[in-house]
Design a protein around this nucleic acid. Sequence first.
DNA 1: GTGTGGTAAGTGGTCCTACCACTTTTATCA
DNA 2: TGATAAAAGTGGTAGGACCACTTACCACAC
Lengths: 231, 231
Amino acid sequence: MVPLQQIKKIIVHDAIIESVMEYIKANNLALGDRIPSERFLAEALKVSRGSVREALKALESSGVLEIRHGGGTYLRSLSSAVYYQYTSDHRENLEMLQSLVQVRQAIEEWTMAEAARFITPAQIKSLYELEKKQPETAQPNMDLEIAVTRLFGNAVLLEMHEKIEQLWKQGYTRLGMAAFSPKVRHEHHLAIIKGLESGDAVEARAAIGLHNRSLEKYIAAAIAKLGTAKE
Amino acid sequence: MVPLQQIKKIIVHDAIIESVMEYIKANNLALGDRIPSERFLAEALKVSRGSVREALKALESSGVLEIRHGGGTYLRSLSSAVYYQYTSDHRENLEMLQSLVQVRQAIEEWTMAEAARFITPAQIKSLYELEKKQPETAQPNMDLEIAVTRLFGNAVLLEMHEKIEQLWKQGYTRLGMAAFSPKVRHEHHLAIIKGLESGDAVEARAAIGLHNRSLEKYIAAAIAKLGTAKE
DNA sequence: GTGTGGTAAGTGGTCCTACCACTTTTATCA
DNA sequence: TGATAAAAGTGGTAGGACCACTTACCACAC
């Protein structure tokens, strides 16, 4: 008995978004370049203009396009988050991780240094317990770093950090990449907590800096390997 | 001669988004709660269903709503960035700015310290020129900080910083707030460039730190004033 | 030349109506 | 009572019509 084949529903709205993104990438459009008019797109894709508008509006709200009343629609920015969302290319994923390491470094150096100034013994204790619970899996994991950020009670800061973590995990899993050594990570994390415990901003900053620079080297090595493999 | 007053246009699409967000806030909806149907909203707001759909689609693409075919529309998440983006409440805007100052501090301290290590004399010169061109308007302005971030050639980092700037300006303009003294800002900016020029990471970090702490105090004062005014 | 105003074409903004696809609720009947 | 069918409600799509705005071009007056 052959199982019934699953019916794939086509959501016009999403299909249009993909088509437009593909169009942008295929034609290698630069920032400021113009996108075909709504009527043209509707005609070319054999869909209604309303559906085209919904798709373009969504792309506008996520910052990709700029729609000018009476003046046409233009490519505003190729937000790397959105761009990466539509590519599965290995190299580009690695590049994303490389970029993310720097962003992590920026945010985490600051949060660690500042947290060292106000963190309480009770909070230190909970961090130790959090780290102890972490199984030594192959999963990329920055729960400790996020936990520290949570101490600030700053929603915007927390969300930004979580967004970075999300992209980070996404890049790792999509690459099917061997994660950074869990053992070394654990050691680094312990050093970070010790740095916080010391109450010394400089020491805390150094501990997280060491960790992130290790990650940076790890990614750089993967890129280098990819480069030679291609030649 | 009295200058002509600018005409304010009403964009239905945006007005609907605001209305829906206000509805969510006013009724204190929890995650998973249902939003009125498209037809109901169109009727209540006296607009077409198509316009309502565009607005809802935009909110869906930014993660606020979840639209289920045939099943209704529901509140999915209220990230503070999105939440703040659609609030016109004075206090909440100030809170956003307060949160943003910390985020700025985190990113900019790092970018300044790192940039000091690799910045070239030519780049220093262009920063001076950029700052010279800045008119001493009442506009909040962080072009200098963004320009420095651009030097890293890191798209993710740049986007994040630009997003912060966007929220920052939005908060300021929506408050109709007297901007931080342009004169002092200019002085601070000059100090920042000098810090970069010195090539000393510590000095650069100190310069931007001073600037952001001033902003922090400025916001805090506004909040304190608001607090007493309400009592 | 120069710039002023008019004109027409193209484009996004909004509305309307009708119908399809899916889900939830209600009513019905065995 | 429980399963099934009908109905109502909701989002998805289509197509047409008209309004609002931008742009490019052109003729005219200076």
